[in-house]
Amino acid sequence: MRTKDENKVKAIKQAVIELCDTIGLANMTTAKVAKEAGVSPATIYLYYQDKTDLLSRLYEEVKDDLHRGLAGAITAAGDDVTAQLRAMLQFSVDRAREFPKESHFVSTLWTSQELLDDAAKASGNTAPGPLLTLYQRLQADDKIVDAPIPVLAAFASVPTLILQTADDDAASLTQAIDLVVKALMK
């Protein structure tokens, strides 16, 4: 049995993120990924079943990478759920600034769920972690509107979507965070 070549897996991941940014997911094929990664098309199938599996596993991995450090940001905000919400939104904007292509990749797949398998779709709303815990706290807080997690997640995505589609204007992003928080308050 072959061992996993981490360099090839990393090259495939970077190729997918780069191609998502330059040509989009609709135009991305495994052949284009292989060429961009500098591997044989057959190599992709050593690690992934098909394009859906490739996108789904990378979506989960990149999303987890982007959330690394989120628990600390939420904890540093104290016990107030509104302060934690603001901290999470600011953390997301900061990570999107630091990793714009990765953020774009996750956002693109989050809004194109038909390209993901059921496990990847579920990971966005049910995977244990600081984000799910915060969403559950928001749902339980009587100061916050009663909304399901996908609705909370959609509102929470607004500041990073603004960052991806407009100039990186700190005042506008602060205003977007304020508007999200106000929209979720009763």
Rank of each mutant, 00 (worst) to 15 (best):
D118L: 14
S107V: 10
A120G: 12
L131T: 14
L134W: 06
T126N: 12
D118N: 15
G124F: 04
F105M: 05
S112Q: 06
L116T: 04
T133Y: 10
P100Y: 03
E98T: 01
A127K: 13
H104G: 04
Q113S: 08
G129C: 12
L109T: 03
L134V: 06
L132G: 05
W110G: 14
P100S: 03
K101N: 03
L134T: 07
P130K: 08
L115W: 13
W110E: 08
K101G: 01
L132T: 10
L134H: 08
K101Q: 05
T108V: 09
E114T: 09
A96S: 05
E114S: 11
T111N: 07
N125Q: 09
G124R: 02
K101S: 03
G129P: 12
L134A: 08
L131G: 14
E102Y: 02
A96T: 03
W110K: 11
G124S: 04
A127V: 02
L132I: 10
P100V: 00
L116W: 04
L131H: 13
D118P: 07
D118Y: 13
D118E: 15
Y135H: 14
S107W: 08
P130D: 09
S107M: 13
G129E: 12
S107C: 11
W110L: 13
A120D: 13
P128G: 08
L115Q: 15
L131M: 15
E114I: 05
T108H: 04
A96M: 03
L115D: 11
H104Y: 10
Y135W: 12
S107Y: 14
D117S: 08
P130E: 12
T111W: 05
G129T: 14
Q113N: 05
E98C: 02
A119C: 10
K121H: 01
T111P: 04
V106I: 05
P128L: 08
W110D: 08
Q113D: 04
T111M: 06
L115C: 14
E114M: 08
S107Q: 12
Q113V: 06
L131N: 12
A120T: 10
T133L: 11
S103H: 06
E98G: 01
L109W: 00
A127S: 07
A127W: 01
H104M: 06
P100H: 02
G129Y: 13
E102W: 00
K101R: 07
A119E: 14
L115F: 15
E98Y: 00
E102Q: 04
W110Y: 13
A122L: 11
T111S: 07
E98R: 00
A96I: 00
A127R: 09
D118F: 08
S103W: 02
S112H: 06
A122F: 11
L115N: 15
R97Y: 00
L131F: 15
R97G: 00
D117N: 15
A120R: 10
F105W: 07
G129K: 11
F105K: 03
G124P: 01
H104T: 00
L132M: 10
A96W: 03
T133V: 11
E98W: 01
A122K: 14
T111H: 06
P128D: 10
H104E: 05
F105D: 04
T133G: 11
P128F: 09
K121G: 01
D117R: 10
V106P: 05
N125I: 11
Y135M: 15
E102G: 01
D117I: 07
A120Q: 09
T111E: 06
